[in-house]
């Protein structure tokens, strides 16, 4: 019996404490994030408001011309609901010149360009707003590598990075995220009709259970098959995890000296705070 249920009160207590402490210790009390209208950024937004107060949170909507209008409306509903500061920066005119430059442009490349443009907008806005960029990645997508490196994966903090998508859904309910945001099919909205589950070829509910066994419970892949998971599915997920590991670590530095960053120059990020 695989049970991913979490105590949401305890989770909210730890995560709001984390957000507040990690910002305050480096001299910040504000945060900003992209608000797509999806569940992950919604949960990060609601947690940030609880941690810092609505006046210290900036939600940035960054639609592309192909973004479905209802996601923009859902984001607005949450902005109004929470009373946070907000900004809408359409990225179409910024990304289209680059996308149009190459005839062999693919959907994947264009999607990555959009994700990285949103990163640029957020990091730029972080200066006048005097806030840090909040990450919105969950454990499932981090493990599968379902993200754009230096795009949506770029952030100062990752509050929900140790919660599976299934658990993010549970947390979203407890935080009062609107039902239609929780219910809608997860999508990166990089092109019309794109859904995570369509692209990945399996559902979050399925893969979360498998990841829980493989990662949290340290099951060997063979043991997961014995537990009833399809062999090809287990192999596919193992492959995604392995192949995308580079997105979860810093780029390796070629070691030459007696003391090298990352190998024998080891300090906590929170050094001296």
């Amino acid at each position: 019996m695989i049970d991913l249920s979490i105590n949401t009160d305890l989770t909210i207590k730890i995560l709001t404490g984390f957000i507040k402490t990690e910002l305050n210790r480096v001299g910040f009390n504000k945060t900003l994030m992209g608000l797509s209208g999806g569940i992950d950024s919604a949960v990060s937004l609601y947690l940030s408001v609880r941690a810092l107060g609505h006046e210290n949170v900036l939600a940035v909507r960054m639609p592309y011309k192909a973004s479905p209008p209802d996601t923009l409306e859902d984001a607005q509903t949450m902005i109004d609901d929470l009373g946070v500061q907000s900004l809408t920066v359409e990225i179409t005119e910024m990304v289209d010149p680059l996308i149009d430059l190459y005839e062999d442009m693919t959907k994947l490349r264009a999607g990555n360009i959009m994700a990285r443009m949103r990163m640029i907008v957020l990091y730029d806005q972080s200066v006048p707003f005097k806030g840090l960029v909040m990450g919105t990645s969950n454990k499932t997508e981090m493990l599968l590598g379902y993200s754009t490196i230096f795009g949506d994966s770029a952030a100062a903090l990752q509050p929900i990075g140790d919660l599976y998508k299934t658990q993010v859904r549970q947390l979203a309910k407890a935080l009062g995220v609107p039902d239609n945001v929780i219910q809608k099919a997860p999508s990166a909205d990089l092109w019309a009709g794109q859904t995570d589950e369509g692209e990945l070829g399996f559902t979050y509910a399925e893969v979360d259970k498998l990841l829980y066994l493989l990662v949290d419970q340290r099951y060997r892949p063979e043991a997961c098959v014995e537990e009833g998971f399809d062999k090809a599915f287990v192999e596919r997920v193992m492959g995604l995890m392995r192949r995308n590991h580079f997105k979860r670590v810093m780029p390796p530095i070629a070691k030459l000296s007696q003391r090298t960053i990352g190998y024998d120059f080891l300090y906590p990020r929170d050094w001296g705070t």
Partner: peptide, 11 residues
């Protein structure tokens, strides 16, 4: 360090 989040109100 706190770890082991489940349904219990404590880690």
């Amino acid at each position: 360090p706190g770890r082991g989040l489940g349904e219990s109100p404590r880690l």
